[in-house]
Lab assay of single mutants.
Amino acid sequence: ATNIVSKVKWYNSTKNFGFIEQDNGGKDVFVHKSAVDAAGLHSLEEGQDVIFDLEEKQGKAYAVNLRIK
């Protein structure tokens, strides 16, 4: 899926990962520091509106092509 609009559930800049809620009630989506860095960001804030693409690797959903709404 591409261009999903949602909100950051939480992000831990010390552990370099977090999760984004899915508005459709699906499972929370993992977001890694590499996606945050690629977006030119230093961190994410809880409740922040984001747009991302969903990529599945080894049966897990990852946020990629992250951008701020």
Rank of each mutant, 00 (worst) to 15 (best):
V64L: 04
Q58M: 13
A1H: 13
K15S: 07
E21P: 04
E45H: 15
A39W: 03
A61W: 15
I20C: 02
K60G: 07
V36K: 03
G25H: 09
Q58V: 08
D49Q: 14
Q58D: 15
A38N: 08
I4E: 04
A35E: 10
T2L: 13
D28V: 05
I68A: 09
E55Q: 11
E55Y: 14
N65C: 05
I20L: 15
H42C: 14
E55P: 00
I4Q: 08
Q48L: 10
L66Y: 00
K9Y: 03
V50G: 00
Q22R: 14
N12R: 09
F19Q: 02
S34N: 11
S13G: 10
G26W: 09
V64N: 05
Q22M: 15
D53P: 00
G26V: 09
G59S: 05
K33Q: 11
A35I: 07
V29H: 08
N24A: 11
K60L: 10
I4V: 11
I51C: 10
L54C: 07
N12I: 06
K27Y: 09
Y11Q: 01
E21W: 15
K69P: 14
A35Y: 05
G40S: 06
Y11E: 01
E56V: 15
N24H: 12
N24F: 11
A63V: 06
N16S: 10
D37K: 14
Y62T: 08
K60N: 08
A35F: 05
T14W: 12
V64C: 07
Q48G: 04
K60H: 09
V5P: 09
A35M: 07
E46N: 13
A38H: 08
A1Y: 12
I51H: 05
A61I: 15
I51E: 09
L44F: 06
A61N: 10
T14K: 14
E46D: 10
K15M: 14
I68G: 06
I4K: 09
H32V: 03
A38Q: 10
V29S: 03
S13T: 12
S34L: 11
G18N: 01
W10T: 02
K27F: 10
N24I: 10
A63C: 04
K33I: 07
E56Q: 12
K57N: 11
T2H: 12
G26E: 10
G25C: 10
L44T: 00
F52Q: 00
G59M: 05
N3C: 11
K69H: 13
N65Q: 03
D37W: 14
K7D: 01
E45Q: 13
K9I: 06
V36I: 11
V8Y: 00
D53L: 04
G26D: 10
V8I: 09
K15I: 11
E21S: 14
D53A: 03
N16K: 14
S6A: 15
L41G: 05
D28W: 06
A63D: 04
N12Q: 07
G59F: 05
G59E: 06
T14R: 13
G25L: 09
V50F: 03
I4T: 06
V36R: 01
Q58E: 14
N12D: 12
S43W: 13
K57T: 10
R67V: 08
V29M: 04
F52N: 00
K9W: 00
E56W: 15
Q22C: 14
K7Y: 06
K57Y: 13
A35L: 04
N24E: 10
G40W: 05
F17P: 00
A35C: 05
Y62M: 10
V29R: 03
H42R: 13
E56C: 14
W10Y: 07
K9P: 02
H42D: 13
I68P: 08
S6F: 06
D23C: 15
Y11M: 02
A39V: 07
V8T: 03
N65I: 03
I4M: 10
V8N: 01
V31N: 01
V8R: 00
D23F: 15
R67S: 05
A35Q: 10
L66N: 00
F19W: 11
L44P: 01
F19P: 02
K69I: 15
G18V: 02
F52T: 00
S43V: 11
T14D: 11
A35D: 05
Y62S: 09
S13M: 11
N65M: 03
V29E: 00
V31E: 01
G59N: 08
K57W: 12
T14H: 13
A35G: 03
D49V: 15
N16D: 05
K60T: 07
S34V: 09
I4H: 07
K33D: 02
V50Q: 01
V50M: 05
Q48C: 09
F30T: 01
E45F: 15
S13D: 10
Q22L: 13
A1K: 15
A38F: 07
V8H: 00
A38G: 07
E55L: 13
V5A: 12
G40E: 07
V36Q: 00
K33L: 05
H42G: 11
W10L: 03
A35V: 09
T14N: 12
K15G: 05
S13I: 12
D28I: 05
F30A: 02
L41V: 08
V5C: 13
N65F: 03
D53I: 04
F17G: 02
F52C: 01
S43C: 14
A61E: 11
L41C: 08
D49F: 15
E55C: 14
W10A: 01
G40Q: 07
A38P: 03
T14I: 13
E21T: 14
I68L: 12
W10K: 02
F52A: 01
S6C: 07
N3S: 10
A35T: 09
G47S: 05
E56R: 12
K69R: 12
D49A: 13
A1N: 13
I51M: 12
A38T: 08
L41P: 02
Q22N: 14
A63L: 04
K9F: 03
K15E: 05
F52I: 07
L41Y: 10
L54M: 10
H32N: 05
S6K: 04
G40F: 06
D49I: 15
A39E: 01
A35W: 05
V50R: 02
V31Y: 02
K57C: 13
K60C: 10
F30N: 00
Y11P: 01
A35S: 09
N16L: 07
Q48Y: 06
V36L: 15
L54F: 07
F52Y: 12
F19A: 02
F17A: 00
N3Y: 07
D53T: 06
G47F: 05
Q58G: 14
N16V: 03
N3I: 06
A1W: 11
I51R: 05
A39M: 06
E46C: 13
V50C: 03
K9A: 04
V50H: 01
E55S: 09
D37Y: 15
H42F: 12
E45R: 13
E45W: 15
I20D: 01
E45V: 14
I20S: 00
E45L: 13
A1I: 13
I20G: 01
H32S: 07
F52H: 03
A35P: 01
N16Q: 13
I68K: 06
L41A: 08
I68V: 13
A35N: 04
E21R: 14
S6V: 04
G18M: 01
D37R: 14
E45D: 10
A1E: 10
S34E: 07
I51D: 04
D53F: 03
T14M: 13
G59I: 01
T14F: 13
D49H: 14
V64D: 04
T14G: 11
D28T: 04
D23R: 15
